[in-house]
Design a protein around this nucleic acid. Structure first.
Length: 284
DNA sequence: CTCCAGGTTCCGG
DNA sequence: CCGGAACATGGA
């Protein structure tokens, strides 16, 4: 950590919440801050006393990745003013939806199915260490997420050795489709939300939920509202209490309309707040 | 030992 | 459109 740090402006920002809220899984605590890769660039981040310090040379990369340009006050103001949302928004002040590279975001969420957050992180690190480009910062070693081409070359057995379980086949299948050009993520980025979601769902292991995570965290679609087991619980408990037989399509339709243009932010705040406060489970 | 985790897919009413 | 089951692995 003797390497040079540069300070960048970061109002209304909470680094800890942003990196540990379950939207991205590979950042590790290093000294007083965090070390991780933004694409194939090693980046160190440290926040103290409301000031944000970044490894020298990574200022632009970090500012963009951390979405420091997102209008957080405006985003908070757009939320519905119900008790659950208000509590979550207050709890998550400064939490930003980061801009992740598309492929690593899609791939990571393919491996997230039926896994707890710490397990997803573990899988990400194993894949990076074994098949990703080696990076270095201040004598520390870290790894970029493996490219689709790199993963497409592997056998399902090699991937299963990374504790992927049944997700190995999906990750490999998706990597192959990307590598072959059957699905073009750069082109997906040009489509509207619905068309982009449909295109992503062509990848094996990508359904409604994973596609929405990819749209939200990897394609800047801040309206995308992923519904996982946590969010479903929150919606049923806080918004449909005492209602019988609320079907999934009903929940989807409600969420898509009710939470507004920044629904993805609302979703992540509700998710993080629920995980950190419900029955002492926190600590992602 | 049992239960469940940021799901997807397939199969039978 | 619906509910159920299979699918791997690890931590509580």
């Amino acid at each position: 950590m003797s390497a040079g740090l540069a300070e960048i402006g970061a109002e209304d920002f909470d680094l800890e919440a942003t990196l540990s809220c379950g939207q991205v899984f590979h950042w590790v605590r290093e000294g007083a801050g965090w070390l991780g890769a933004v694409g194939d660039a090693p980046v160190y981040l440290e926040q103290s006393g409301g000031r944000l310090f970044v490894s020298a040379g990574a200022e632009e990369t970090a500012a963009r990745y951390l979405a420091l340009d997102h209008p957080l006050a405006e985003i908070r103001a757009s939320f519905p003013a119900d008790p659950a949302m208000t509590a979550a928004a207050e709890f998550c002040r400064g939490l930003r939806i980061v801009r992740q590279p598309a492929w690593e975001c899609v791939a990571t969420f393919i491996t997230s199915a039926m896994k707890q957050v710490p397990h997803i992180a573990q899988i990400s690190h194993t894949l990076r260490r074994r098949f990703g480009a080696r990076l270095e910062w201040a004598g520390r070693e870290l790894f970029a997420y493996p490219t689709a081409t790199a993963l497409a070359r592997l056998s399902e057995a090699e991937l299963r050795e990374c504790a992927l379980g049944f997700r190995a086949k999906n990750l490999r299948g998706a990597a192959r489709m990307i590598a072959e050009g059957a699905v073009d993520l750069a082109q997906v980025a040009t489509l509207d939300d619905a068309a982009a979601r449909a295109e992503l769902c062509r990848l094996p292991g990508v359904g409604e939920k994973v596609a929405n995570c990819a749209l939200l965290f990897g394609f800047e679609r801040v309206r995308a509202f992923p519904i996982d087991v946590w969010i479903e619980r929150v919606l049923r408990e806080r918004y449909f209490k005492r209602k019988r037989k609320v079907t999934s399509p009903r929940l989807r339709a409600f969420a898509a309309e009710y939470f507004g243009p920044y629904g993805g932010y609302a979703q992540q705040y509700l998710f993080h707040h629920a995980r950190m406060t419900w029955r002492g489970r926190g600590k992602g």
